[in-house]
Design a protein around this nucleic acid. Sequence first.
DNA 1: AATGCGGGGTA
DNA 2: TACCCAGCATT
Length: 344
Amino acid sequence: MTHRASSESRSSRPDPRFPAVSTADIHRVRETIITWFESAARPLPWREPGTSAWAVLVSEIMSQQTPVSRVEPRWREWIQTWPTPEDLADAPTAEVLHRWDRLGYPRRALRLQEAARVIADELDGRVPGTAAELERLPGIGSYTAAAVASFAHGERTTVLDTNVRRVLIRLFAGRDRPSASPGRAETRWAGQFVPEADHDKWNAGVMEFGALVCTAKSPDCESCPLSDICAWQRAGQPPSAVKPKTQKWAGTDRQLRGAIMDVLKSAHEQSNGDNAGSVSLDLLTASTAEVDPELLDALPAHTSTKLDRVRDLSADPDRVGRLIDGLISDGLAARDDDALRLPG
DNA sequence: AATGCGGGGTA
DNA sequence: TACCCAGCATT
């Protein structure tokens, strides 16, 4: 039998990364954030009373790694088009990807439809009510599960997104930035701030505070109602020692994948009943000189422009072909004889 | 723990 | 150009 360490190891071994916080400071921060939130929150549509759990879930998926300002119009269109999990479950995947538009990470749209199908087919159309159950759905991780459970179902969870982590780390650890990803210790530490009542106001409020005041790049410390207890402020706002690895874009596979998807979405947009909205693989992969002019002429001008973009990005048919295989493998595209289209 | 995955806004 | 944005899944 394994009695690991001593019996008090769970609760309070000091962890230098997450210092102890006094009860007074915990209450002060709770009240300050919730009061600030009630007067300064952005009027986001999914926060309005009566928003369904499904609509909240859609907003959270769309907001993963995507600024809220870009999410709002897409969210409105999605909720209008597919108000329930059943509606999205029944939709053609091509339509789902097309309406995802340019939000980025289109695999999120695929996972969301998969989740909708699980909810519709196995859960009687009900969005799971606890974070633990939500986390079993595709595309839903610890953040999204906690957020939906707190905002839509009233479960007292600890919501830890990049904003919350930054706010708490600055206030009480005196560091500029949190680590790359939150661990158990950090989640437990952050959990002490979540009040029993108004947990949703705390969770949404501290997130909003990080988005509007305690921002990553140029925090508005002048107007911060917590600057008097902020450890990072007290230490002189020291920058992080290590700079984050920033991803390249120009010239990468990601850019080219996006350009190929753009061609498929354009073809889908132009398509109608007797037109599948597909694009010849030769047009995508053959070098310019070998392209059949008739195929090119048959293409709508809009799609042809997108195709030019792909060629500008890569003149290497093998590379384009490899990325196409990847898209098909990921479920973002489908082979249609010798053509490619959005998946049905 | 590291990597891949989109796309656009901002300084 | 570099950084950032309500992360997740895979290795």
